Each structure stands twice: as C-alpha cells, then as structure tokens.
Amino acid sequence: MPKVKSEKRTCSHNDHVKQGICFNTNVGQHILKNPLIINGMVEKSALRTTDTVLEVGPGTGNMTVKMLEKVKKVVACELDPRMAAELQKRVQGTHLQRKLHLIVGDVLKLEALPFFDVCVANLPYQISSPIVFKLLLHRPFFRCAVLMFQREFAHRLVAKPGDKLYCRLSINTQLLARVDLLMKVGRNNFRPPPKVESNVVRIEPRNPPPPINFTEWDGLVRIAFIRKNKTLSAVFGTNSVLDMLEKNYRIHCSVHNQDVPTDFSIKSLVMRLLETDEFHSKRARTMDIDDFLALLNLFNSNGIHFA
C-alpha cells in the first residue's frame, strides 16, 4: 500500500519545537520563560485592579496569565492563530477566561488600538519602531508601557545628544515621552534564545504633549538625521532637500495668496535662515530637542514647511 503523507506541519530551519508547538523566529517568536523576569515586568508596570492592559505578542501566555490575575481586562494581540489557540486553551474554563479579549491579527494593521491603561509586552523585535510610535500617537493617553526590546534598540531610545546611538528614533521618542531602562535580560531567558541581548524599557507619554505639529517636526528631524554627522548647511544644501522645500514653499504661498518673487531662490532663503544662531554649523548628532524646536519655528515662521 502507498504511504499516506502526514499533514502535520514540518518546522522549517527557523522554527523550534517545544511541547508540540513550532516557534517561528522569523516573526519574532521568542517566548519569555523566566518567571522572575515576567514577575519583574508585571511589577514595574504597577498594575491596578481597574486597569485594562494591552499585550502585543502574548505567545503562549506566560505573562498574560500573571496580568489577568491582577487586572480587570487584558487585550492580547497575537499574529499567530496557533499561539492564540494555546492562550485561549490555557484560560478556558477558569475565572480568568472572561477577562481575556483576544485579537488575532497584525497589530500594526489595526486602524486604531483598543482602549488601554497600560501596555506590557515582550514584543516581536521586528515591529519595535512602528509599535513605539503607534503607541505614542494613540489617544486617549495611556499611563505607561513596559516593553521588552533588543538591547541596542533600547539604548537608542534613551540616547542623548553626542552619544554614538543618538538618532531620529531617540529624539522623536523623547519629545513625546519619558523613557527609562529598567532591566537587562540575557538571551537564555527566552525559548528559543534570540541572537541578541535584551532590555526592558518603561515609556511614559508626556501629557499634555508638546504643542507642535508632529508631522512637521518629524519631517525636519528626518532630513537633519539623513547625515547626522554633517553640518546642517551641508544637509540642507542638497538638491533633493531644496527641491522638496521649494515645492512646499510654493504650495504654502499659493494657499495663503502670497506671490513668489520671480528671482526667488529657496537655497538663499534656507542658508540665510541657517545663519540664525549659527545653525549652519550645527550637526544633528549634537542637537537637543530645544535646538530642533527653535529651528522648526524659524523655518515655519518664514514659510518653509516639511509636511
């Protein structure tokens, strides 16, 4: 008789088996197994019995169950239906079942995050940057987020002007939130172990947020950090940047019924403005939030926009 092929899923090179489950490391499935780290993250989040908690990437639910015992509700977003089924099975028939709201799908594709007071998560590291800004731009404000990140990413979040890792991510995050490193987490605390070390970070949104247009702000910072070691005059003197700024300038003038002189030169205007407070010789890697706020106000008040 011919052999019947098994339909059982075969784990690929990047999958690891534990208790019958294939963990797919390609989508960041590294399950936090150390109960001391799990308890530490839950304690650092200072959960209240009235809280709704958002958890991204709950996996098999090691941390979810701990939080369900402490709060009113946990909204868990899980990409992998197999993991979601394991989590549901874990709480089924217990008093915790009614407290769990499970969303199966890509959290980044949600039009808006559900309401939550606190976010606690061992995140898939591939989505670290987009999830940080999805959280920080979420309304209404949440109290804090306690998140696991790859160590270098965590250090970028807290980097200061002049630090090697200081970048656009650093200044954008610190504009919108207070960020603190909480604890180091070695790779062997996960199953399967990732290739990198990790850190737990606490993010507390600034409420109220700074009174600026974040799209304008991010447009300026994005340009400045294209070459963070070069002077602003060099960065803003490139043809691609000047072309974009001139297009925005002409749109701004058109909207406000202002004429653009026939001999108008966007480069002359930009370089003249950069002479103010010697911005022309400054470099993004050493500029702090106040420097960028002053530069943005200078540009915007002279009709130069980044959005």
Rank of each mutant, 00 (worst) to 15 (best):
Met148Tyr: 06
Pro208Trp: 06
Leu175Gln: 03
Pro208Arg: 06
Thr173Asp: 05
Trp217Glu: 00
Phe153Trp: 14
Asn172Cys: 13
Arg187Lys: 15
Asn189Pro: 03
Ile212Val: 15
Leu169Ser: 04
Arg202Met: 13
Ala234Asp: 11
Arg202Gly: 01
Ala224Asp: 04
Phe153Pro: 06
Val201Cys: 04
Thr215Gly: 00
Asn199Leu: 13
Gly237Leu: 09
Glu204Cys: 10
Gln174Cys: 11
Asn229Gly: 12
Asp180Lys: 15
Gly219Phe: 07
Val158Met: 12
Ala159Asp: 10
Leu165Glu: 14
Val185His: 02
Asp163Trp: 12
Asp218Lys: 11
Ala177Ile: 08
Val179Asn: 08
Asn213Trp: 07
Leu169Val: 13
Ile212Asp: 01
Thr231Gly: 02
Leu232His: 02
Phe236His: 00
Lys160Arg: 15
Gly237Cys: 09
Phe153Ile: 10
Ile203Asp: 00
Pro210Thr: 00
Ser170Tyr: 10
Leu175Glu: 05
Lys228Thr: 03
Lys184Gln: 15
Asn189Asp: 11
Pro192Ala: 07
Gly162Gln: 13
Pro194Ser: 08
Ser233Pro: 00
Gly219Arg: 04
Val221Trp: 00
Pro211Glu: 08
Asn207Arg: 14
Ala224Gly: 07
Glu152Val: 13
Arg222Asn: 12
Thr215Lys: 15
Asn229Leu: 12
Val179Cys: 07
Gly162Ala: 10
Gly237Ile: 06
Asn213Tyr: 05
Phe225Lys: 02
Pro209Tyr: 06
Ala159Gly: 12
Glu152Thr: 12
Pro161Glu: 07
Arg151Glu: 14
Ile212Leu: 14
Asn229Thr: 14
